[in-house]
Design a protein around this nucleic acid. Structure first.
Lengths: 149, 149
DNA sequence: ATTAAATAGGACTAAAATGGTCCTCAATTA
DNA sequence: TAATTGAGGACCATTTTAGTCCTATTTAAT
């Protein structure tokens, strides 16, 4: 489905919450209770975001997590790769190693163009964009079956 | 990793092969031996592509599969959704049903913009583009660890 | 100093998705 | 009628993902 993992989805919810909250430092437990996501899961996600330099953590009592920079400076691409690793549609996009043996492999080189396009799209959207309220048009409910045609 | 499934990857290889081959109709077994992909797997993929109206099948002796239309008319988006279902990064992109209870859900509406962008990117690339030989720059080998930064 | 509150790091388990194979039925040609 | 080929779906093994938990480390407050 070319879909994001659940954890990535949670991460955007958590980050959006943090970006909107005026408090600078929030403990994992606070975030968990505010977002309704289980605390161990929240902690797991926060750790990954710290490793990716999206968040800064403070240990010890009164510790917690804070955004490492302004929401405008945090792209969706960064968040996705923090949770899921590099954004690459095919294995070949990471490295062409060992692809030469497949008879159709020369074709796949063109995937890099597609990858680049998608990466650019995700890079251009920031956390600030995500929290900006959009007037969504009236929701139209479409049964999933219909989407498959 | 936001990556395509292996089957989708195979599908592009198979379709590229078919687009380049002058024969109009190819049996699953022929395709399997030419591409090096196991025959049962090839069959599975071909069936999915028929259901998505990307291929046309002919049963019986001398039967096989042929492209339903010109390579220029077959988008990568079509191929991906044939194999993996609708292209939607988040569940909410398919339907917002039941999202209202989450405190951060109003944020996710903006995902639809991202989805649209990516969908457009994939829609704009066709099978014809995939088989067009590209002069790929000298491959630079980057250890995966470095990509994670 | 000691205690309590937090994060860091990683092991572990259960559930879900994926990849891959196989079997039976239907259609077509020779 | 026999041989060839696709249709459809069941099935299983493997991998991935989600989620939890445990132990160590760090810091603040008393």
């Amino acid at each position: 489905m070319l879909r994001l993992s659940k954890l990535t989805d949670y991460a955007t919810v958590i980050l959006s919450f943090m970006a909107k909250d005026k408090a600078q430092v929030l403990a994992a437990m606070e975030i968990a209770s505010m977002t309704g996501i289980a605390q161990p899961t929240v902690s797991k996600i926060l750790k990954l975001l710290v490793n990716a330099n999206v968040l800064i953590s403070t240990r010890g009592a009164k510790g917690g997590y804070a955004l490492a920079r302004m929401p405008e400076e945090i792209s969706v691409a960064t968040v996705i790769s923090a949770l899921e690793g590099p954004i690459a549609l095919t294995e070949c996009s990471i490295s062409h190693q060992g692809c030469e043996q497949a008879s159709g492999c020369d074709i796949r080189g063109n995937w890099s163009l597609i990858n680049q396009t998608i990466h650019n799209a995700l890079e251009s959207v920031t956390l600030a964009d995500l929290i900006r309220p959009v007037a969504l048009p009236e929701e139209v409910f479409i049964p999933v079956a219909n989407i498959y045609r």
